[in-house]
Nucleic acid binder design. Structure first.
Lengths: 194, 194
DNA sequence: CTCTGTGAAATTTTTCACAGCG
DNA sequence: CGCTGTGAAAAATTTCACAGAG
């Protein structure tokens, strides 16, 4: 909406886009403060600013990608990250044949370089895009060198100490949810919001 | 666990792996029926069977991938799908330069072929891996040719009729959640389950 | 008038706690 | 005994409904 120069938006409109109740939108947004105007709605640009502030998107987060297979490359080339302040600053792979190759304007580095890369480039988030078998070992290494936020794309359960944030994107699970609703004849709700 | 020949598992163990309360595991599993043995736990293989049945994973679901960029290729090569009964049966791209190229053992087809592919190959689920700008048009085409389950990876809001199941995987949102917890000094919970 | 912000009510989810089966 | 299955209680989330700001 901001790109399309929409000035204001109502909770009703946002609710429709998100597939939820308008009261929920208002209640949720009220936690940011009172940024709406009664009888008018919310100022789009202000809302983007306030939400960005709350989510910690006002500054850049350096990101490292572990595992430079198809998925790792897809993540490295994903344009959506940059737009939200996530900057890919390092690519790491265990395969010596991949080390030294270039993806975009980054060179693939060996696993041994991880500690140095994290320090030098201030890596705050690690994306695990390795095969399942390697995921836990890679997570352990990330934790060991001080990375405290991990997004795991590998289809494996990974355990980390309580002070580390860990999320998992499981592509097969997403499809399973769809198949569940297909079979039920019901309709799957929204996935991960916008 | 099944691969590792674990015979039975308790709700307590499952709860720890999933990061939830044991009572929740038991209550959730109870919706499948009474498959646990008191004093012992759940039979791993039986549990896998019952959950698969409930989720509709006992038969194959033919899947089409729309958009054969890095992400599309990563999805096409993703091994986790096959293991859960999702078979990639068609690759479609709007770029004439990509049409005719091969990815794995599939040939990239033009968008015009979609209707025929869906019919001939029984496509039940469509994965949108196009740029954001193309996502809605591709979704419209999928709906028009009768696909009733869509997983959208493009960073765009897509609207479909109520009878169609739509889920969205938003990679930047996942990172945003991590950054939120980083900033809060709190810890992000689990993401999409195992 | 319109649309927000929010107490209060309704609903859903989660946890407790324990009877009872193997 | 140990662990499931499940009513009942507690907690969290969602919705209603409306006062009141612009």
């Amino acid at each position: 909406m901001s790109d399309q120069a929409v000035g204001t938006v109502s909770s009703e409109q946002l609710a429709e886009l998100a597939g939820v109740n308008a009261a929920k939108v208002r209640k949720d947004l009220s936690y940011l403060g009172s940024y709406g105007t009664r009888g008018v709605g919310y100022d789009v640009d202000q809302l983007v600013r306030e939400v960005s502030r709350e989510l910690g998107l006002t500054h850049d987060w350096p990101v490292a990608i572990l595992g430079v297979g198809n998925l790792g490359r897809a993540l490295a080339n994903y344009r959506g990250f940059r737009a939200r302040g996530f900057r890919i600053v390092a690519l790491v792979d265990a395969d010596p044949a991949k080390v030294g190759t270039r993806v975009g304007d980054l060179t693939v580095e060996p696993v041994e370089a991880l500690s140095r890369l994290v320090t030098e480039r201030g890596v705050a988030i690690g994306l695990i895009a390795t095969p399942a078998a390697a995921a836990q070992a890679v997570a352990d290494r990330l934790v060991a060198v001080g990375v405290r936020a991990i997004l795991n794309f590998a289809p494996a359960v990974v355990v980390v100490p309580p002070e580390v944030s860990l999320r998992k994107v499981d592509l097969a699970t997403e499809l399973s949810i769809l198949s569940f609703y297909q079979q039920q004849g019901r309709r799957a709700g929204d996935g991960v919001g916008v």
